[in-house]
Simulated assay, not measured.
Amino acid sequence: MKPWILGLTGGIGSGKTAVADHFASLGVHVVDADQAARWVVEPGRPALLQIAEHFGEDILLPSGELDRAALRERVFRSPDERKWLEQLLHPLIRAEIARHLALAESPYAIMVSPLLVESGQYRQVDRVLVVDVPEALQVQRTIGRDRTSEEQVRAILKVQAAREERLRHADDVLLNDRDLPWLKSEVERLHHFYLTLRGGGNECDHR
């Protein structure tokens, strides 16, 4: 039987990676949309050539790889540029994710994406799990992890879906405001529940 797909999302600093890693350690096939986004712009891939043509050669590092920081800076400043980039990359990323999900052999597979709601990727999954965290904690964790400024974290939060919007699409919510052992036990509880589901729904929840 083909595995059903769980979409896993959460804002920056919510702990999505820790959650995904623990699901993976339980034998669940996990595909990361951020990784897929990196694969499609690797040197030699057509998308990278188009990006360099559009933004100019200085968007590349001396090694020929994409200068992610420079690109992020450009698209944060200009909604039009962000739109152009999304229209180029989203279909490629979708195809890349589908290719990797097709390799899954676990009863269900997980697609991890910070922009699951914003990009419409939630339409590709059977069920949505949101890792939720109070905004103040998000900011504090991200500053500590990325050594970035509060201003930049808040700019990213603005681009990501509002917490309420994410929660509106959630079938399940994991509130990550405690420690790692607790988080792992919650992941295990959800995993056992997911193993009982067929196609991501249960008897009373056919989406």
Rank of each mutant, 00 (worst) to 15 (best):
V128P: 07
Y122P: 06
L180G: 08
I12L: 10
V130T: 04
H22T: 02
I143P: 10
V139C: 12
P79V: 12
G7E: 06
A36P: 09
L195H: 06
D34V: 10
V31P: 06
E164H: 13
A70S: 05
Q87R: 15
H29I: 02
L190F: 04
R207E: 13
R45H: 14
I97N: 03
I156S: 02
I12C: 00
E135Q: 14
S113R: 10
R127H: 04
H191C: 01
L167N: 07
L103K: 15
E73T: 08
R45N: 11
S185E: 14
Q152S: 12
D205T: 14
I5V: 15
H206A: 15
S119P: 11
A155M: 11
V31E: 06
I51A: 03
D34R: 07
A70R: 06
R99P: 09
V187F: 03
R168A: 15
E151T: 14
D34K: 11
L92V: 02
L60M: 10
V128E: 06
L195E: 09
A24L: 04
R38S: 01
G200Q: 01
T9W: 08
E65F: 02
I5Q: 05
G27E: 04
P181A: 01
K2Q: 14
S149E: 09
A95E: 15
R127Q: 12
L137Q: 13
G11H: 07
S14V: 07
R189L: 10
W39I: 12
R147Y: 04
S106M: 04
D126W: 08
S113L: 03
L157D: 05
F55N: 02
Y108A: 12
A155L: 14
L92E: 10
H206V: 12
N202T: 12
E81C: 12
E105H: 14
L116M: 07
L48P: 00
P79F: 03
V131D: 06
K16M: 09
S106H: 02
G56D: 03
A104H: 07
V117F: 00
A52W: 08
L129G: 11
R163H: 00
Q124A: 15
L8A: 00
